[in-house]
Structure formats: C-alpha cells, structure tokens
Design a protein around this nucleic acid. Sequence first.
DNA 1: ACAGCCATGTAACTCGTTACATGATTAC
DNA 2: GTAATCATGTAACGAGTTACATGGCTGT
Lengths: 184, 184
Amino acid sequence: MTSELSTTSYALLGLLVFDDATSSTGLTGYEVKQRADVTLRFYWTSPAMSQIYTEMSRLHRQGLVESVVERPGRRTTRRYRITPSGQTALTSWLSSTQVDFPILKHPVALRLLMGHLMTPDHVEKLLGGYREALVDRRAELQDVRDLLGDNPDVKFPALVADWGLAYYAAEDKIVTKLIAGLGP
Amino acid sequence: MTSELSTTSYALLGLLVFDDATSSTGLTGYEVKQRADVTLRFYWTSPAMSQIYTEMSRLHRQGLVESVVERPGRRTTRRYRITPSGQTALTSWLSSTQVDFPILKHPVALRLLMGHLMTPDHVEKLLGGYREALVDRRAELQDVRDLLGDNPDVKFPALVADWGLAYYAAEDKIVTKLIAGLGP
DNA sequence: ACAGCCATGTAACTCGTTACATGATTAC
DNA sequence: GTAATCATGTAACGAGTTACATGGCTGT
C-alpha cells in the first residue's frame, strides 16, 4: 500500500513531525508552506502551494497524515497531523534509503564556464551580483538561525542552519578570491 | 521564432561552442553526453541521453545548431555544430537574462534536519558516508581539472573546476566539524 | 563468439511550476 | 472600504527521468 514517496513528500512529513512535538492541532497547507519557506528552501526546495496541497492529499490517501476540518467561521480549514504510521514511514525512510549525493544547480558557475564569450567587465559583474545575492541569502538564514536559538527541541535544525551559514560563508570567500584572481 | 529555451538548452549550446573552437566536425549526441558528464554534471545536471537527443532536435529546429549526417559504414551518425545564430543566442542569453540563485538539493542536510528520529550512531554514519562520497566526487573533479591544465582556451572551465574543488573542500571541512561537535 | 561501447530515438510517466478560480478574515 | 493575508483547490503545461526498442562497431 505504501507505494514509493518522493523525497519532497518525506520532507513535508518531516515538517509535520516537528509540529507534532509541540502537540498542536496540526498545520494547514498554508502553514506547511510557510515552514517550508524557512527551512526546506535552503537545502531542498520549498514546493509551490499547489504542490503542498497535492502532496498532503497523497499523504492522507496513504494514511501517513490525518486531517481535521475546522470551521471557526464560514471558512473551511483543513489541518494535517502526522499519524503513527507516518512516523514509522519517515523513520524507515531515514534508515533504509540510500542517500544521494547533493545536486547543485548553479547558474553563475554555468555562465562563468562560458566566460570567454563575455567581456571581463561583464564577468566581474556576474560574480559581484552573485556575492550580493549571497549576502542577502545568508542574512535570511541567519534570521532563521537566531529564531532557533539553543532550544534543544530544534537542535538538529539549528545544526543544519549552521551548516548552511558556513556554506554561504565559504562560497563568499571562494567567489571573492575568484574575482580577485580574474585579471591574469 | 527563437522562443524561450531552458537553461539546460543553453548549457548544451555552451558545450558545442567549446567544440567549435577546436574546429571539429561537431559532436554526436553521444559525445555531448560525455562532455556533459565531465563538466555540467558538477554544477548543473548532465541530462539523460534521451533528453540530449530531444534538446538537439529542438536546437536544430530553431536553427541554433546544424547537423551533418555521416555514414562511414552502415551506421548513421549525426554530428551537431553550433551556428552563428546559435552563437548569438548564447551570447545574448549570457548578457540579458537575470541570473537565478543556485539551487541546492541536499539529501544529507535534509535527513540531518530530522536527526532526532535517528540514533546518534546513525547520524554519524550518515555524515561519515557523505564525507566519503565527497572525497570520491572531489577526486573525479580533480581528474577533470588536471585534464584542463593551464591551457588558455579552457581558462574559464578551469576556473569553474577550481571553484568546485574549493566548494568540496569547504564542505568536507564543515562536515568534519559537524561530526566532531555532535556529542554535546 | 561475446562483451562492451557507440549510437539513436520513442513512449510513458513523474515532479513540479504557473495560471486560473474562488472566497473568508483581519488590520488599518 | 480596502488591502493584505489566510486558505484551498484544479488545469494546463514543461522539464526531465526511466523503460523500451534497435542495431552497428571494436577489441579480445
């Protein structure tokens, strides 16, 4: 019955697991998207709203999440919570599956490859623009990191955020050197 | 006429540009795949064979590449070369398009996020396994880098390869620290 | 003769996106 | 009252993968 799920499905299930720990009534699709935007976005992807909803129905169909419909006013809101079956599925995915090597889709590096078709000025602008974007990204992730603090409940998310921050720092250093060494 | 192409299309066009500089008769789809495997793979993706062929027909339909059919024996081989129109398209893509921030799909970081569902031993194995994979990857890229040498024709590919090597080195450092700091 | 590489393509399918469509609630 | 945010879903499409199907050429 539990046919193969995509990694993204498991990622979303992971978000629900964290919510579950806070013994809440669950998350709406909308809220799942918000969580994804501050976590998954940095080292996986934050799926589009439409995909979140499709993914939630899929998980529900497979019994990995349960949904409760709320009607506080006139609006219908559906809250999702992970089920014990979902917990099991997630844990077994964590332990059993072979872990793929990360995939990097780097438009800047791709363009730099063809640097001989650009003016030196243009190449420098390309890399400079990337550095700026990197600074912004890093600041966004730093905000997330600050939010996590040293709360032991989110020890691992904090570790991952630190990882991301170190990665952005390294990338910044590399690109700075790259720019400096362009002339000769 | 030149409707929007995907980044992957331009990446493949980029491979043909390098081949063109060597004034060859062009590349077969099969050879394009081989080139992609040693360059694009590290910072974009190396498309499946089937996609290479589809992409080549698309580029051909749009006049960005020309194809020559060879029949040395009984087998039909089609070689692709970039056209002046393709050169223009590539150059204008390089200068005009807004450059997206890199996308990282990191299965290891994603799993670490849910570290509280794993045993400490398992977490360590996860990260350790990643470090090993990283070493392999790095060696593969180093081979490519060595091939490029200091030939000025491939100055930019060499720069990008160096970038990749520095990235893998940084990642290795970060993960090593991460493993060391897991206990407390 | 047999393995392994060279070579090309189609078909079915999945994942994910954007566009479309709709409407309630909240804060100013 | 009106803009922003909350909230949910469907439809059409694109990009990319695996599976399928076919066969020539080369080295041992």
